[in-house]
């Protein structure tokens, strides 16, 4: 019983952090602060994954989102924005629309969560090791990921080519 309690404490902690920093992210008027709060949201999510023993997913979350995307966002903020720069206040009309959209999203997920019949897992928490992940990534049979894997690599190649083209266009 107490092991579950420990898990619950951790879960509540992480989800509270996610909720709190998410709200801060969208309400902060300084762009770099918003990006920093976003970083904390992503890290707390990684924490949830660690709790569920999804270590690979958690590490991917940290590398790609926290270490990669947030760094790029911050980097572009450094290049384009000044420290005095603040966002304008959101007009009331937009604010109301945003609140409605967010509220409906919360309502949707809450109804799904509350009506879904969760079955308590009774097997040991499994830890997926690297061999399994590697094999399923390059597997073309059922539950194989080779097609998405290759499609994503084409997408990345296109992105790289585009970046080179943009960078080559003119020199300062």
């Amino acid at each position: 019983m107490e092991a579950i309690l420990g898990n619950q404490v951790m879960f509540i902690l992480f989800s509270a952090m996610i909720v709190m920093f998410s709200i801060l992210t969208v309400t902060s008027r300084r762009i770099l602060r918003a990006a920093t709060f976003l970083l904390f949201v992503l890290l707390s999510t990684a924490g949830l994954y660690f709790m569920l023993n999804y270590q690979f997913l958690a590490a991917v979350q940290i590398t790609l989102y926290a270490g990669g995307i947030v760094v790029l966002i911050i980097f572009s903020i450094l290049l384009t924005s000044h420290i005095d720069h603040k966002f304008d206040r959101v007009p009331a009309q937009k604010l109301i629309m945003g609140v409605i959209a967010a509220g409906s999203g919360i309502a949707l997920s809450l109804t799904t969560l509350l009506t879904y019949n969760f079955v308590p897992a009774n097997q040991e928490p499994i830890s997926v090791d690297m061999n399994t992940i590697g094999k399923s990534l390059l597997n073309y049979g059922d539950h194989g990921f080779v097609l998405p894997f290759e499609v994503i690599s084409v997408l990345l190649l296109a992105a790289i080519v585009a970046a080179v083209v943009i960078a080559k266009r003119k020199k300062i």
Partner: peptide
């Protein structure tokens, strides 16, 4: 003893740069 030990170390150590970027920007 993570089964993704090396990956974890690489992932975590990539976070430090955020601190450096923030430090540089926020000092005005």
């Amino acid at each position: 003893d993570f089964n993704i030990g090396i990956f974890y170390v690489v992932a975590v150590s990539s976070l430090g740069v955020i601190g450096i970027l923030l430090a540089g920007w926020s000092s005005n």
